[in-house]
Computed example of a mutant assay.
Amino acid sequence: MENARELVIIKTMYDFQETFEDIDKTKVRGILEKNLCDYVLVNQSTALMASDMKEKIIFFLRIKKLEGLANDTLESYYHTLNEFSKHIIKPAAQINTNDIRTYLYTIQSENDIKKTTVNTKIIILKSFFKCLLEEELIKKNPMLKIKTMKVDKRSLRTALTIEELEKLRNACKDIREKAIVEFYYSTGCRLSEPLPIEISDINWNECSLIVVGKGSKEREVFFSKKCKLYLEEYFKTRKGDSQHLFCGIKKPYAALSDSGIQKIVKKIAKRTDIKKNIHPHILRHTFATLALQSGMSESAIQELLGHTNIDTTKIYAKISKSNLQYEYNKTMIA
Protein backbone atom coordinates (compact mmCIF):
# COMPACT_ATOMS: atom_id res chain seq x y z
CA MET A 1 0.00 0.00 0.00
CA GLU A 2 1.27 3.47 -0.89
CA ASN A 3 0.39 4.89 2.55
CA ALA A 4 2.37 2.17 4.33
CA ARG A 5 5.34 2.65 1.98
CA GLU A 6 5.45 6.40 2.64
CA LEU A 7 5.17 5.76 6.39
CA VAL A 8 8.15 3.37 6.27
CA ILE A 9 10.22 5.91 4.35
CA ILE A 10 9.46 8.76 6.77
CA LYS A 11 10.10 6.58 9.83
CA THR A 12 13.36 5.23 8.36
CA MET A 13 14.55 8.73 7.48
CA TYR A 14 13.85 9.86 11.05
CA ASP A 15 15.69 6.84 12.53
CA PHE A 16 18.69 7.43 10.25
CA GLN A 17 18.89 11.08 11.26
CA GLU A 18 18.77 10.19 14.97
CA THR A 19 21.37 7.41 14.62
CA PHE A 20 23.98 8.82 12.24
CA GLU A 21 25.86 12.09 12.46
CA ASP A 22 25.46 12.97 8.79
CA ILE A 23 23.60 11.44 5.88
CA ASP A 24 22.66 12.56 2.40
CA LYS A 25 18.91 12.53 2.99
CA THR A 26 18.02 13.06 -0.66
CA LYS A 27 20.04 10.02 -1.76
CA VAL A 28 18.77 7.85 1.12
CA ARG A 29 15.15 8.71 0.32
CA GLY A 30 15.77 7.94 -3.36
CA ILE A 31 17.25 4.54 -2.50
CA LEU A 32 14.33 3.69 -0.21
CA GLU A 33 11.74 4.69 -2.81
CA LYS A 34 13.53 2.69 -5.51
CA ASN A 35 13.85 -0.47 -3.41
CA LEU A 36 10.33 -0.37 -2.00
CA CYS A 37 8.44 0.46 -5.19
CA ASP A 38 7.95 -3.21 -6.17
CA TYR A 39 6.64 -4.30 -2.77
CA VAL A 40 3.23 -4.15 -1.10
CA LEU A 41 3.65 -3.19 2.55
CA VAL A 42 0.97 -4.06 5.08
CA ASN A 43 1.01 -2.92 8.71
CA GLN A 44 0.91 -5.86 11.13
CA SER A 45 -1.68 -4.03 13.19
CA THR A 46 -5.14 -4.81 11.83
CA ALA A 47 -7.06 -2.85 14.46
CA LEU A 48 -9.45 -0.40 12.85
CA MET A 49 -8.73 2.26 15.44
CA ALA A 50 -4.96 2.13 15.02
CA SER A 51 -5.04 2.13 11.21
CA ASP A 52 -7.36 5.15 11.26
CA MET A 53 -4.76 7.28 13.03
CA LYS A 54 -1.90 6.05 10.82
CA GLU A 55 -3.85 6.98 7.71
CA LYS A 56 -4.76 10.38 9.11
CA ILE A 57 -1.12 11.06 9.99
CA ILE A 58 0.03 10.22 6.44
CA PHE A 59 -2.77 12.38 5.02
CA PHE A 60 -1.69 15.30 7.20
CA LEU A 61 2.01 14.91 6.33
CA ARG A 62 1.23 14.90 2.61
CA ILE A 63 -0.69 18.15 2.93
CA LYS A 64 2.16 19.73 4.86
CA LYS A 65 4.65 18.54 2.27
CA LEU A 66 2.59 20.21 -0.46
CA GLU A 67 2.67 23.38 1.65
CA GLY A 68 6.45 23.32 1.39
CA LEU A 69 7.51 22.12 4.85
CA ALA A 70 11.07 20.77 5.03
CA ASN A 71 11.70 17.03 5.36
CA ASP A 72 13.26 17.60 8.80
CA THR A 73 10.02 19.24 9.96
CA LEU A 74 7.90 16.46 8.46
CA GLU A 75 9.99 13.84 10.25
CA SER A 76 9.57 15.71 13.54
CA TYR A 77 5.80 15.87 12.96
CA TYR A 78 5.72 12.16 12.21
CA HIS A 79 7.64 11.25 15.37
CA THR A 80 5.34 13.36 17.60
CA LEU A 81 2.09 12.16 16.01
CA ASN A 82 3.20 8.52 15.91
CA GLU A 83 4.03 8.66 19.62
CA PHE A 84 0.61 10.25 20.27
CA SER A 85 -1.19 7.51 18.32
CA LYS A 86 0.46 4.83 20.50
CA HIS A 87 -0.92 6.42 23.66
CA ILE A 88 -4.49 7.03 22.46
CA ILE A 89 -5.91 4.04 20.58
CA LYS A 90 -9.01 5.59 19.06
CA PRO A 91 -10.20 6.74 15.64
CA ALA A 92 -9.26 10.39 15.16
CA ALA A 93 -12.92 11.44 15.12
CA GLN A 94 -13.47 9.95 18.60
CA ILE A 95 -10.52 11.62 20.34
CA ASN A 96 -11.72 14.27 22.78
CA THR A 97 -10.14 17.07 24.81
CA ASN A 98 -9.94 14.96 27.95
CA ASP A 99 -7.99 12.25 26.06
CA ILE A 100 -5.40 14.83 25.04
CA ARG A 101 -5.13 16.38 28.50
CA THR A 102 -4.55 12.92 29.96
CA TYR A 103 -1.89 12.21 27.34
CA LEU A 104 -0.04 15.49 27.98
CA TYR A 105 -0.18 14.99 31.75
CA THR A 106 1.10 11.42 31.40
CA ILE A 107 4.09 12.18 29.20
CA GLN A 108 5.14 15.10 31.38
CA SER A 109 4.80 13.30 34.72
CA GLU A 110 6.28 9.96 33.59
CA ASN A 111 9.13 11.30 31.46
CA ASP A 112 9.77 14.56 33.31
CA ILE A 113 10.09 16.44 30.02
CA LYS A 114 10.48 20.20 29.79
CA LYS A 115 7.56 22.58 29.34
CA THR A 116 9.04 23.72 26.04
CA THR A 117 8.99 20.12 24.75
CA VAL A 118 5.36 19.72 25.81
CA ASN A 119 4.52 22.98 24.05
CA THR A 120 6.13 21.73 20.84
CA LYS A 121 3.91 18.63 20.97
CA ILE A 122 0.85 20.80 21.64
CA ILE A 123 1.60 23.01 18.62
CA ILE A 124 1.98 19.96 16.34
CA LEU A 125 -1.25 18.39 17.65
CA LYS A 126 -3.10 21.67 17.14
CA SER A 127 -1.91 21.78 13.53
CA PHE A 128 -2.87 18.12 12.99
CA PHE A 129 -6.44 18.34 14.30
CA LYS A 130 -7.05 21.73 12.71
CA CYS A 131 -6.11 20.19 9.36
CA LEU A 132 -8.44 17.22 9.89
CA LEU A 133 -11.30 19.59 10.76
CA GLU A 134 -10.70 21.79 7.72
CA GLU A 135 -10.64 18.69 5.50
CA GLU A 136 -13.94 17.53 7.10
CA LEU A 137 -12.39 14.31 8.41
CA ILE A 138 -13.51 15.10 11.97
CA LYS A 139 -16.50 17.11 13.19
CA LYS A 140 -14.90 18.71 16.25
CA ASN A 141 -11.39 19.90 17.03
CA PRO A 142 -10.35 18.46 20.43
CA MET A 143 -7.39 20.86 20.67
CA LEU A 144 -9.43 24.08 20.82
CA LYS A 145 -9.38 24.25 24.61
CA ILE A 146 -5.79 23.06 24.98
CA LYS A 147 -3.35 25.89 25.73
CA THR A 148 0.43 25.89 25.72
CA MET A 149 2.15 25.88 29.09
CA LYS A 150 3.47 29.11 30.56
CA VAL A 151 7.24 29.29 30.38
CA ASP A 152 9.55 31.86 31.94
CA LYS A 153 11.23 33.25 28.83
CA ARG A 154 14.30 34.21 30.80
CA SER A 155 14.86 30.55 31.66
CA LEU A 156 15.11 29.80 27.94
CA ARG A 157 18.02 32.20 27.50
CA THR A 158 20.73 30.38 29.45
CA ALA A 159 24.17 31.59 28.39
CA LEU A 160 27.72 30.47 29.02
CA THR A 161 30.07 32.59 31.09
CA ILE A 162 33.37 33.62 29.49
CA GLU A 163 35.10 30.91 31.51
CA GLU A 164 32.63 28.24 30.32
CA LEU A 165 32.99 29.38 26.72
CA GLU A 166 36.76 28.94 26.98
CA LYS A 167 36.30 25.47 28.46
CA LEU A 168 34.11 24.52 25.49
CA ARG A 169 36.66 25.91 23.04
CA ASN A 170 39.51 24.05 24.75
CA ALA A 171 37.54 20.78 24.60
CA CYS A 172 37.49 20.82 20.78
CA LYS A 173 39.72 18.06 19.38
CA ASP A 174 39.87 18.92 15.68
CA ILE A 175 39.53 21.86 13.33
CA ARG A 176 35.93 21.01 12.39
CA GLU A 177 34.84 21.15 16.03
CA LYS A 178 36.70 24.44 16.54
CA ALA A 179 35.09 25.94 13.42
CA ILE A 180 31.58 24.87 14.46
CA VAL A 181 31.80 26.24 18.00
CA GLU A 182 33.41 29.50 16.91
CA PHE A 183 31.01 30.01 14.01
CA TYR A 184 27.83 29.56 16.03
CA TYR A 185 29.16 31.71 18.86
CA SER A 186 30.54 34.57 16.76
CA THR A 187 27.57 34.79 14.35
CA GLY A 188 24.75 34.17 16.84
CA CYS A 189 22.99 32.09 14.19
CA ARG A 190 20.10 29.77 14.90
CA LEU A 191 20.95 26.09 14.43
CA SER A 192 19.56 25.58 10.92
CA GLU A 193 20.25 29.02 9.44
CA PRO A 194 23.79 28.42 8.09
CA LEU A 195 23.25 24.82 6.95
CA PRO A 196 22.17 25.68 3.36
CA ILE A 197 25.11 28.08 3.00
CA GLU A 198 27.88 27.19 0.54
CA ILE A 199 31.49 28.34 0.71
CA SER A 200 30.98 30.67 -2.26
CA ASP A 201 28.29 32.54 -0.28
CA ILE A 202 30.83 33.80 2.25
CA ASN A 203 32.14 37.35 2.00
CA TRP A 204 35.68 36.80 3.24
CA ASN A 205 36.66 40.48 3.08
CA GLU A 206 33.82 41.53 5.37
CA CYS A 207 33.77 38.25 7.35
CA SER A 208 30.04 38.02 6.73
CA LEU A 209 27.32 36.02 5.01
CA ILE A 210 23.60 36.23 4.36
CA VAL A 211 21.32 33.77 6.16
CA VAL A 212 17.58 33.21 5.95
CA GLY A 213 15.89 33.30 9.33
CA LYS A 214 12.36 32.99 10.66
CA GLY A 215 9.65 34.14 8.30
CA SER A 216 12.06 33.66 5.37
CA LYS A 217 13.71 36.97 6.27
CA GLU A 218 17.27 37.51 5.06
CA ARG A 219 19.85 39.17 7.27
CA GLU A 220 23.61 39.68 7.27
CA VAL A 221 25.62 38.08 10.05
CA PHE A 222 29.32 38.47 10.84
CA PHE A 223 31.99 36.13 12.15
CA SER A 224 35.21 36.83 14.07
CA LYS A 225 38.78 36.79 12.75
CA LYS A 226 39.42 33.68 14.83
CA CYS A 227 36.43 32.01 13.19
CA LYS A 228 37.75 33.04 9.75
CA LEU A 229 41.08 31.32 10.43
CA TYR A 230 39.35 28.16 11.63
CA LEU A 231 37.04 28.07 8.60
CA GLU A 232 39.92 28.59 6.14
CA GLU A 233 41.94 25.79 7.73
CA TYR A 234 38.88 23.52 7.88
CA PHE A 235 38.05 24.03 4.20
CA LYS A 236 41.67 23.37 3.17
CA THR A 237 42.09 20.16 5.15
CA ARG A 238 38.72 18.42 4.97
CA LYS A 239 38.05 15.54 2.59
CA GLY A 240 35.62 15.48 -0.31
CA ASP A 241 34.44 18.23 -2.63
CA SER A 242 31.33 19.36 -0.74
CA GLN A 243 30.66 23.08 -1.01
CA HIS A 244 28.49 23.22 2.10
CA LEU A 245 29.68 25.02 5.21
CA PHE A 246 29.90 21.92 7.42
CA CYS A 247 29.95 18.34 6.18
CA GLY A 248 30.55 14.79 7.35
CA ILE A 249 33.96 13.19 7.71
CA LYS A 250 32.99 10.00 5.86
CA LYS A 251 31.87 9.43 2.29
CA PRO A 252 29.83 10.87 0.66
CA TYR A 253 30.86 13.85 2.87
CA ALA A 254 27.28 15.12 2.90
CA ALA A 255 26.23 18.40 4.47
CA LEU A 256 25.64 18.12 8.22
CA SER A 257 22.02 18.21 9.34
CA ASP A 258 20.59 19.93 12.44
CA SER A 259 20.98 16.74 14.45
CA GLY A 260 24.53 16.26 13.13
CA ILE A 261 25.60 19.67 14.47
CA GLN A 262 23.80 19.02 17.76
CA LYS A 263 25.59 15.70 18.29
CA ILE A 264 28.99 17.28 17.66
CA VAL A 265 28.35 20.09 20.16
CA LYS A 266 27.03 17.60 22.73
CA LYS A 267 30.13 15.45 22.22
CA ILE A 268 32.40 18.45 22.84
CA ALA A 269 30.42 19.44 25.95
CA LYS A 270 30.82 15.97 27.50
CA ARG A 271 34.58 16.56 27.64
CA THR A 272 34.06 19.53 29.98
CA ASP A 273 32.81 19.90 33.55
CA ILE A 274 30.15 22.46 32.57
CA LYS A 275 26.91 21.62 34.35
CA LYS A 276 24.61 23.49 31.97
CA ASN A 277 22.73 21.81 29.13
CA ILE A 278 25.02 22.55 26.18
CA HIS A 279 23.49 22.77 22.71
CA PRO A 280 24.16 24.93 19.62
CA HIS A 281 21.50 27.48 20.59
CA ILE A 282 23.27 28.26 23.87
CA LEU A 283 26.09 29.70 21.75
CA ARG A 284 23.58 32.15 20.25
CA HIS A 285 22.47 33.12 23.76
CA THR A 286 26.11 33.50 24.78
CA PHE A 287 26.85 35.78 21.83
CA ALA A 288 23.93 38.06 22.74
CA THR A 289 24.74 38.14 26.46
CA LEU A 290 28.46 38.81 26.05
CA ALA A 291 27.79 41.38 23.32
CA LEU A 292 25.56 43.31 25.73
CA GLN A 293 28.21 43.09 28.44
CA SER A 294 30.74 44.51 25.98
CA GLY A 295 28.52 47.52 25.27
CA MET A 296 26.81 46.59 21.98
CA SER A 297 23.41 48.30 21.68
CA GLU A 298 20.20 46.31 21.97
CA SER A 299 19.11 47.50 18.50
CA ALA A 300 22.33 46.19 16.94
CA ILE A 301 21.92 42.82 18.67
CA GLN A 302 18.29 42.71 17.56
CA GLU A 303 19.40 43.16 13.96
CA LEU A 304 22.19 40.56 14.18
CA LEU A 305 19.96 37.95 15.84
CA GLY A 306 17.02 38.60 13.51
CA HIS A 307 14.55 39.42 16.28
CA THR A 308 11.33 40.96 15.00
CA ASN A 309 10.49 42.39 18.42
CA ILE A 310 13.00 44.34 20.53
CA ASP A 311 11.35 42.89 23.66
CA THR A 312 12.86 39.51 22.79
CA THR A 313 16.31 41.09 22.74
CA LYS A 314 15.66 42.89 26.05
CA ILE A 315 15.43 39.50 27.79
CA TYR A 316 19.18 39.18 27.30
CA ALA A 317 19.74 42.47 29.12
CA LYS A 318 18.26 40.96 32.30
CA ILE A 319 20.43 37.85 31.98
CA SER A 320 23.46 40.00 31.23
CA LYS A 321 23.06 41.76 34.56
CA SER A 322 23.17 38.49 36.49
CA ASN A 323 26.20 37.32 34.50
CA LEU A 324 27.97 40.62 35.14
CA GLN A 325 27.38 40.18 38.86
CA TYR A 326 28.86 36.68 38.65
CA GLU A 327 31.96 37.95 36.85
CA TYR A 328 32.29 40.83 39.33
CA ASN A 329 32.04 38.58 42.37
CA LYS A 330 34.57 36.19 40.85
CA THR A 331 37.03 39.05 40.29
CA MET A 332 36.59 40.93 43.59
CA ILE A 333 38.43 38.63 45.99
CA ALA A 334 38.30 41.07 48.89
Rank of each mutant, 00 (worst) to 15 (best):
E298T: 15
I264K: 07
C227H: 04
L48G: 04
Y14R: 10
E6N: 10
G188T: 12
I319R: 12
K266T: 13
E303T: 14
N96M: 09
E177T: 05
V212F: 10
A47K: 11
R219Y: 04
T187S: 12
K150A: 10
I100Q: 04
R271Q: 14
V265F: 06
V212T: 15
Y14Q: 08
H79M: 10
S192N: 14
G30T: 03
I100H: 06
S297R: 14
C247H: 07
E75H: 09
K90P: 07
A159D: 02
V211G: 03
K214C: 09
E218Y: 07
Q325V: 13
L283I: 04
F84K: 06
Y253M: 12
E177G: 05
A288N: 04
A93I: 11
G215F: 05
N277V: 11
K115I: 01
K173M: 15
V221N: 02
V151Y: 09
G248T: 15
T313Y: 09
K251S: 14
Q243N: 15
R176I: 00
A159R: 01
H87C: 09
D72M: 03
G215W: 05
E21T: 14
M143G: 08
M332S: 09
L132Q: 03
N43L: 12
E67G: 04
P142R: 11
D38H: 08
Y316Q: 09
I95C: 04
L305Y: 07
C247P: 03
